[in-house]
Write a protein that binds this DNA or RNA. Sequence first.
RNA 1: CGGGGCGUAGCGCAGCCCGGUUAGCGCGCCUGCUUCGGGAGCAGGAGGUCGGGAGUUCAAAUCUCCCCGCCCCGACCA
Length: 492
Amino acid sequence: MAEITKRSDDYSRWYQDVIQAAELAENSPVRGCMVIRPNGYAIWENIQRTLDDRFKELGHVNAYFPLLIPKSFLAKEAEHIEGFAKECAIVTHHRLKQVTVDGKTTVIPDPESKLEEEYIIRPTSETVIWDQYRKWIQSYRDLPLLINQWANVMRWEMRTRMFLRTTEFLWQEGHTAHATAAEGREETLRMLEVYRWFAEEVLAMPVVCGAKTPNERFAGAVETFSIEAMMQDRKALQAATSHDLGQNFAKAFDVKYQDAEGKVEYVWATSWGMSTRIMGALIMTHSDDNGLVLPPRIARVKAVIVPIWKNDQEMAAVCEAADKLAAELKPVVGLVHVDKRDKMRPGWKYAEWERKGVPVRLELGPRDLAAGHVMMAARHDRAKNAVKFDELATALPAELERIQQDLFDAALKRRTEATVEIDTWDGFVKLFQDGGGFAHCHWCGDGACEQAIQDETRVTIRNIPFDRDETPGKCVHCGKDSIGRVLFAQSY
RNA sequence: CGGGGCGUAGCGCAGCCCGGUUAGCGCGCCUGCUUCGGGAGCAGGAGGUCGGGAGUUCAAAUCUCCCCGCCCCGACCA
């Protein structure tokens, strides 16, 4: 098995090594696209299940809209097209033709099958969805309309990275329509809170909630909100976004409703999404030089039992006990896997399950069997101790909870230690030359100034935190008046 | 798309500068025996159009040109 590069040697290489070692994903023949392997997809399935349940508790329903969008649709919202035009894949033909060139048979798009109206592969679905909403919404009784879809989208990025930025990615996109601006804003913030809850409580990933600056807003949004996490290299990662779209799409697609008084008005819209990118954040938040570390709440396999034996007789006895334990624990904590593979010794299995991030390992050998206990070892801190069989049904859930909490605490501690307030430009430049971090600084509010900061330092405003310090001050870059601090960081 | 690095067995690499038997090594894989409480040992074995194409040459992994892909640093982004 290939060695995992140490984080301290090459963070970016380490990240790729972890993905390979844990068999999460690999590159595909198509540039910028990845194959998500079963271990990786299991994490995505848990993300889907958990978020989907939460969406439905809040009244959303799922639907599915098509992958292909008529080219003309994208042009209907001016800012929207400006934001996405540069990264769209376009379908131009509907048939291939076999041709022979220099004795070799190949296929080309059949010139006779050129489409009259070309399609684009969705970079996001606002346009098709709003074209449909026009037909579905007539009265205030049709509102609010709360729909989500799980889908793949394509954005032709110049530079890609596993999970963090791939040409094709998976996500969910919620699209809602409301009768008032206030309801739209309320929904936008409600869904941002769902993402905060999910990131912090399920993924054990502390985040900063806030509003994006106008420069960083979603193309076509009135206001964009984000949750921002800090990775172990101190760079920020936008983990999810929620947009208040105002009436921009309703106007572009002519979606109106009649209220109780008979007055006709455009509806108010929101959209919100979390993508497979979050898996990159998950990997980079918790994993270590031994491989993947998964918070128990998102791990498919909660614990693995490694039976230990010397001969067939011991094997039979130990495996039987292991199966029994796994069956008892499953209703309590979820999947507990028994690794009965022969020809691999226990030490090898320990190392493998560590690479793959299984939160807890239970070692069960003849000596343990005789003593009526198992050795329980945690992935993240290697803490190991004996637990009696009849105590395992309470000890294992408690250990999983401890792990979940430890991971969150460690991530929060890293972030706290790498978060500072900076009031001088020299200090700002120095921070980001010297390891970086989260910097709460005053900003004048001018987009040109924000851009200048980015051009000079590669540092951007991640968001304007909800809980920011609103003591007035002077912009860290230009010195003009500022009404409060914003969050600066280098980002993925 | 610009700058830098790299493509040789599933993974990690050597060989290339200075062309020349049958292209090696470690890990993994297969078979057998001994093993088995932190990545087992021995023996035998399978696996390669040396990223692709064109050229130079008696002869190309090695030299030349073109193309493709990957990684890092920029410009764009969830």
